[in-house]
Design a protein around this nucleic acid. Structure first.
Length: 536
RNA sequence: GGGGGGUUAGCUCAGUUGGUUAGAGCAGAGGACUCAUAAUCCUUUGGUCGCGGGUUCAAGUCCCGCACCCCCUACCA
């Protein structure tokens, strides 16, 4: 167990102020696929997801609804967890809440470390504040109008000069260190276009960062022993200090000597959306450098999903709930579609026709039908058991070798989260397998050369087994059904836990072979075509 | 305003350091087969590579200009 390499990955934690939509599901699913793939590949995986519950908005919403902030956060966190559990089948190892007790300890501990490093100081945050927008604007983002009042150019709201006591983090002193990090670790952020934006931003100069608030109290308190003698005000941490630290909490911080922390930190992968790349690619490594902690190995920034090219928004009314999709198309289809259709890291535009196209063409026709036709022939013509192959011919060896190549190719693609590449190549091989099957025409061989027929059916089943192993991460339920249908010994859980590290359904068994004589049952279609609901 | 990216078949996109007749999938057309989920296989229609110049023996691929589209330009999560 301990000898297996660790793989620690995280999603962003969600701010629980709205129902999760398909864009959230995209992040959870892609991280889940990554986690399952690594577990199936023998890694000791830890997969963290959860909710970011502090901040002024939660506090205000709670007040409006007559709840305490914690009650509101709990209610909404449960709604998100329910989507993970009941709608999307997310195999997280811990659902972390930033209100968890150990997270308070972790947040205060990293703050302590940054103070010890001399990177935190008390000052005043001053700027043009818009009460209506609840945010500050820079001088050049405002305009003085005829009425003598200053307005925010972006939102047209009046602003007033406001000074507020705040602790600051010496971000400015990390500019060169960050650039050095980017230079020496080109794999630290992907995709490259996002990374370039980050680099250019840092090159443009960094100002110190305000990292505490005194105007509300729903947050992790800055330890009193650290503020004594400096201020009488109660400071809570700026939410991003608290939020980012969840990744450390999930690894056992602040117990840096613990076996858990030693094993899990640094994280191998943070999966995030493009809206929060700055926090993860600039602030986060700077905080960690200050705290004397190792940096995560990679930040992967996924794109946003658009509904038929339009941004999802409540006002337009085109927001898709994950459950609406899984009910319409099926969970495995949704998972497959999201990873196959869009290059990970780019924005994607979905339509009903696009989902149905993938479901019918890729799943039902190319994969489902190949399984159904080959397994049906085995059930009817081979005494209902995996047949014994005769000597393999060149064409047999070639298709087996193509299937074989998919493991290395998938590993490489997953290593850089190029999910679509792995799937694209897998379906190319399935196309080759369909051509092989048609060319060999086992239904004709049945009348002329039964031994050859058995060989063709065996080879086809063997290709299907390897494909099924690999796609467990993407479509755990369907792939499990396919492996069942192929008579592969039941084992593991399609990557849901480390129980999938070894055994006949792990990647360790990729080059094993189907055992002739293993009985199979009469096949049932695993990937049905899409049926439009009856119009009435 | 400044910086960056994009514009290739009906649709979604690949196109390496410039080099022979510009590719894939889906959709469309024709044929084959009948094991299979009206699935599969074979063949095939379809592109002035946004527009205009330029460099070069040779440009989708480099340079300049133009037109649209998108992203970034710090403290809302």
């Amino acid at each position: 167990m301990a000898s297996r390499p660790s793989y620690y990955l995280t999603t962003a934690i969600t701010y629980p102020n709205a129902e999760p939509h398909i864009g959230h599901a995209y992040e959870y699913i892609s991280a889940d696929v990554m986690a399952r793939f690594k577990r199936l590949d023998g890694f000791d995986v830890r997969f963290l997801t959860g909710t970011d519950e502090h901040g002024q908005k939660v506090q205000q919403t709670a007040e409006r609804e007559g709840l305490t902030p914690y009650e509101l956060a709990t209610r909404n966190a449960q709604a998100i967890k329910r989507v993970d559990d009941e709608v999307l089948g997310i195999s997280y190892d811990r659902f972390i809440r930033t209100t968890d007790q150990d997270h308070y300890e972790a947040s205060q501990a990293i703050w302590h470390r940054m103070v010890d490093a001399g990177d935190i100081y008390l000052d005043k945050y001053a700027g043009w504040y818009s009460v209506r927008d609840e945010r500050f604007f820079a001088e050049d983002e405002t305009e003085l109008r005829q009425d003598g009042q200053r307005y925010a150019a972006e939102t047209q709201t009046p602003v007033t000069w406001t000074e507020e006591e705040s602790y600051f983090f010496r971000l400015s002193s990390y500019q060169e260190k960050l650039l050095e990090l980017y230079r020496t670790h080109p794999e630290f952020v992907a995709p490259a276009t996002r990374f370039n934006e980050v680099i250019r931003f840092v090159e443009g100069g960094l100002e110190d960062l305000s990292i505490s608030r005194t105007t509300f109290d729903w947050g992790v308190p800055v330890p009193k022993e650290l503020t004594a003698g400096e201020t009488d005000l109660n400071h809570v941490m700026y939410v991003w200090v608290d939020a980012l630290t969840n990744y450390l909490t999930g690894a056992g911080f602040p117990h840096t000597d613990s076996e858990e922390f030693q094993r899990r930190w640094p994280a191998d992968l943070h999966i995030i959306g493009k809206d929060i790349s700055r926090f993860h690619c600039i602030f986060w490594p700077a905080f960690l450098m200050s705290a004397g902690l190792a940096l995560p190995r990679r930040v992967m920034i996924h794109g946003f999903l658009h509904n038929a090219g339009e941004k999802m928004s409540k006002s337009v009314g085109n927001v898709v709930a994950p459950a609406a999709w899984t009910q319409t198309y099926g969970l495995d289809t949704v998972r497959f579609f999201l990873l196959r259709e869009f290059p990970y890291g780019q924005d994607g535009s979905y339509t009903h026709d696009a989902v149905v196209g993938r479901k019918n063409s890729d799943l039902a026709n190319n994969l489902g039908n190949l399984a159904q036709r080959s397994l049906s022939m085995i059930a009817k013509n081979c005494d209902g058991a995996i047949p014994e192959p005769a000597e393999l011919l060149r064409s047999d060896v070639e298709i087996i070798e193509q299937a074989d190549s998919l493991l290395a190719l998938s590993r490489e693609a997953y290593q850089s989260q190029q999910f679509h590449r792995a799937l694209e190549r897998t379906w190319y091989v399935l196309g080759e397998a369909n051509a092989y099957f048609a060319e060999q025409a086992p239904w004709k061989l049945k009348k002329t050369d039964e031994a050859r027929m058995r060989t063709v059916l065996y080879v086809t089943a063997e290709v299907l087994r390897r494909v099924a192993l690999l796609i467990q991460a993407v479509m755990p339920t369907s792939a499990t059904q396919l492996l069942d249908a192929l008579g592969v010994e039941p084992d593991g859980d399609a990557g849901a836990t480390n129980a999938s590290n070894v055994g006949p359904r792990s990647f360790a068994a990729f080059r094993d072979k189907l055992v002739p004589g293993t009985p199979i049952s009469k096949p049932q279609p695993i990937f049905p075509r899409h049926e439009e609901p009856q119009e009435t």
